[in-house]
Structure formats: C-alpha cells, structure tokens
C-alpha cells in the first residue's frame, strides 16, 4: 500500500535536533564562515576588487586563467565525449584497463602531476626535450604546459558524467535513426548529442570549475612568472605573500564567485533525486 508521504517521517526527537545542530555548526565553522570572509575582506575596508582590477598582474593572470581553462575544457570535452562513446558503444581489447586508467588523474596529487609533466617535457632534462627542441616548441614554463597540466587534472570529469547517461539511453534510438537513413555524424548530432546534453553541460561546468582553480600542477609547470605565465590562483599566493592582501582577497573573491556559480548551476541542473 502506498502509504501517505509523511507516514514515514518520524517526529523530530531531541536526538534529531542534536544531530542537526551538530552538522550545521560543523559546516558553519568549517565552510560557511571562512568562505564568507572572502567577501568581507574584499569589500570590508574599501573596494579591493576595483583596485585589483586596475592591477596589470591580476588582470593578466585572470585573462590567462580564462584562456587556459577554455582550452583545457575544449580539449577535455572533445576527448571526453569521444572516449565515452568508444567505451560505451564498442568492445575492444584492453577496454576495462583503459576505463580504469581514465580515472587516474583524479587520484594523483597535483604536485606529482606537475612533476610528471616536468619529467616528460622539461626543457633540459625532459624525456621529450630533444623532440621538442627539434620542432622548437616550449611546453614547460609556457602556455602549452599550463594547458596540459590543467587538462590533466580535469580529464575524467566529462567522461564520468557522460558515460552513465550513454549507458542509460541505450542504442535503440540510434539504431532507429540509422534505419531511417541517418549517417554516423547526423545520428550523433541529432540523436546522441541531444540526449547527453545535460550530462555534457554538467561535465563541462565541473571541468571549468576545476580548471580555473588548479594550483599545484600549474605552479610547477608554469614557472610562475608574473605577467607571463601566472594564472589567477598563482597570483593569489603571490599577492598574499607580498602583503597585498586586498588583491589576494579580491582575486579569490572572483574565483569563489565562479566556483559557487558553477555549483548552483550544477545543483539546479541535476534532476532532483526521488527521496523516500
């Protein structure tokens, strides 16, 4: 019998209130209060945001971050959708190994990622240094390296969102489209893409948030040179250590704003789970 919706809702007991209070208190002191201070410190004593936006180092770093994040997200979206399709729709030797390896970037320390890229593409001792020299491409301490580090850390995020949806929708619609004469590309654009649209948006938003915020790996591969290879997160550190706290908080405020906006978008997009 379908019981009345509130039939299971137990009356709040003192224990319920205690748990609720404990959780709310914990989250308040660990997350809410600290994060809210970024606003207070940015606007509390004069508008540091306006000042920071006059600072060429900050402006450069923010632009750099946007460019890097853009390319990292583009690369990961194309790679992610392609890989998801291959993993879900095809069988091939080594598939399960590949599937496991694709999650690897999430469990490696950013510092280790930086180190790995340095070992591979470092200008002097890097494994591929001779090749890169021959084609005259500088990766480390320049933009390509920053993009690579950023793409590395956020690589699995699109795949993780798209794969379950692709598995869920199955192949019937695609087969129907094929039977109606649609080619491979038409089928993808008109049938597959619309069905994974929201998962894709979700994955892109997560990748974007992660890309904008990457610090450790970028710090190693970028060389952290002001107005040349410095990203927003690096400028936060530098400004803070140089006692330009206002600029540090203002840049952090911008980054926080984007992160929270990304979370709100994702929370709104995600279908509300049915809760019993």
């Amino acid at each position: 019998m379908a019981s009345h919706p509130t039939a299971r809702g137990q009356r709040p007991t003192p224990a319920t209130h205690a748990r609720r209070a404990l959780v709310l208190g914990y989250l308040f002191f660990l997350v809410v209060w600290p994060v809210s201070l970024v606003v207070t410190r940015t606007f509390g004593d004069g508008n540091h945001l306006a000042a920071a936006l006059q600072d060429p180092a900050v402006v450069f770093a923010v632009q750099m971050t946007v460019v890097v994040a853009f390319w990292a997200v583009v690369i990961n979206t194309v790679f992610g959708v392609g890989m998801s399709l291959l993993i879900v729709r095809y069988d091939f030797w080594g598939k399960s190994v590949l599937n496991t390896l694709l999650d690897l970037p999430l469990s490696v320390s950013p510092v280790v990622i930086g180190l790995a890229l340095l070992l591979a593409y470092g200008p002097r001792d890097g494994y591929f240094a001779p090749v890169l020299d021959a084609i005259d491409l500088q990766v480390i301490f320049s933009v390509p390296g920053i993009i690579m580090a950023t793409a590395f850390v956020s690589l699995p995020l699109v795949i993780r969102e798209v794969v379950p949806v692709l598995q869920e929708i199955g192949t019937e619609q695609e087969q129907a489209a094929r039977s109606l004469g649609a080619g491979g590309w038409q089928t993808f654009r008109r049938i597959t893409l619309p069905s994974i649209r929201w998962a894709l948006v979700y994955g892109v938003v997560l990748s974007l948030a992660r890309s904008l915020g990457e610090f450790g790996a970028v710090k190693i591969v970028s060389g952290n040179i002001s107005q040349q290879t410095q990203t927003a997160t690096l400028v936060v550190e530098e400004k803070y250590l140089e006692f330009e706290r206002g600029a540090a908080y203002a840049t952090s405020f911008l980054l926080t704003l984007i992160a929270v906006a990304a979370l709100v978008i994702v929370t709104v997009l995600r279908p509300k789970e049915e809760r019993v």
Binding site: L37, G213, Y249, L255, T256
Partner: peptide
Amino acid sequence: IIIDIPFALPTIVAGLVLLS
C-alpha cells in the same frame, strides 16, 4: 551546495579563507 564547496573552490582560496 555547501558540502560541495570544497570540491569547487580553488585550493589556494581554501587555504586563504581558512587563514582568515
């Protein structure tokens, strides 16, 4: 949303806000 903030917030900013 609050639970997920540590996932989305840049780590350097996390350090900064805890420091404040």
